[in-house]
Simulated assay, not measured.
Amino acid sequence: MTAARPNRRIRIGVSGWKYASWRGDFYPRGLAQRRELEYIGEHFSSAELNGSFYSLQRPQSYLRWRSEVPEDFVFAVKGSRYVTHMLRLRGAEQGLANFFASGVLALGAQLGPILWQLPERQNFDAALVEAFLASLPTSTGEALELARRHDERLDGRAWLEIDEDRPLRHALEPRSDTFADPEALSLLQRHGTALVAADTAGRWPRFDALTADFAYVRLHGAQMLYHSGYTAAEVAEWAGIVSAWADGSGSSDGLPRDVYVYFDNDARGHAPHDAEALAALVGALV
């Protein structure tokens, strides 16, 4: 008799949470802004941290965010644009050291995948991508060793401790169709890095290949990038995809996967409502 394969956890949430258009709509009128993340934690099981993309955050911020959500809530953290958009993955070790020293590790057990979003002009370069993926820490212990090599800009404000050594997951969101190259998929698989499935209203290519033991989905809008809401039919379609990836029926290897889904169609306040609709369909914990 074959044992039943368990469904892996599906986490559905939003990309960021500080949006004026959500106030008095998703957020109840009168809710203090300092309690918005707490409210997110009551409704979802995960969220993307976006501020880390634009600048190095401080340990105190990560500790505060962690304290405002339930213990089983998970943060996906967006990697530094200094690494992805300025260095364009070249010579990135110092940038990675500073990023991991900035306080990311203070999230502890609530640290989820690290998202690396590439610029549209970044074409697939096998040697470059191989070197970058090989430089990414695969555990919090490795990340700590890397963080200890931070430069003087982090002196006196670095977070250099972990409570235990945990595996680290990375996801790559390219915006060039050159990443459809089978060699790119092979590299990602070899390094256990998830290729992000991004819905961008046709602006950038959508990749659906599963290259890791988890899947990462970013929903930026099906009709208008960042602006349009998802119809009931579109939510149902994504519910089918996500559920099939989670139970293994939608993957070529038949293996169940953890699935992280984030709505980024926040310009007109659709993201949290769409996230709730999808969570209700897949039965995710929210």
Rank of each mutant, 00 (worst) to 15 (best):
A20L: 07
L89A: 03
M86H: 05
R5S: 14
R23C: 08
P28A: 12
N265I: 01
Q223C: 15
A284E: 01
E120I: 08
Q94F: 07
D165E: 09
Q110M: 06
Y19R: 02
Y230V: 10
V196W: 14
F132E: 13
Q223P: 13
W22Q: 07
Q57C: 02
A126N: 09
S67W: 06
V129T: 09
E145H: 12
P182A: 07
A32I: 06
E234M: 09
E161W: 00
R8N: 09
W204K: 00
T140S: 15
L111D: 05
D181T: 10
R166V: 07
P174I: 11
L89D: 03
Q110S: 04
Q117F: 04
S135Y: 10
I241L: 12
F73L: 12
G103K: 09
L185F: 05
D125L: 02
L118R: 04
Y82S: 07
R29H: 03
L107E: 13
R29D: 06
S135H: 08
P137T: 01
R166W: 06
G141F: 02
F100K: 04
E36H: 11
L172F: 11
G51L: 01
V14D: 10
A271H: 06
A209F: 13
D72V: 13
L118K: 03
F124E: 00
E237I: 08
M1W: 14
V235L: 05
G229K: 05
T200P: 06
E42A: 15
R88L: 11
S186G: 04
E130Y: 06
F26G: 01
W159F: 11
L133F: 09
L96G: 11
A246K: 12
L219S: 02
M224V: 15
W204L: 03
E237C: 01
N50D: 15
A197R: 13
W159M: 00
R5P: 03
A267T: 09
E276M: 11
W65Y: 12
F44K: 10
F75N: 14
A47D: 04
W65L: 08
E120Q: 09
H85P: 10
T178S: 14
F214P: 12
R257V: 08
V242W: 06
I114T: 04
G240H: 12
Y39T: 01
R203K: 14
S61I: 15
H170S: 08
L225N: 07
Y82E: 06
G248E: 12
E173A: 02
P205C: 05
Y39A: 05
G229W: 10
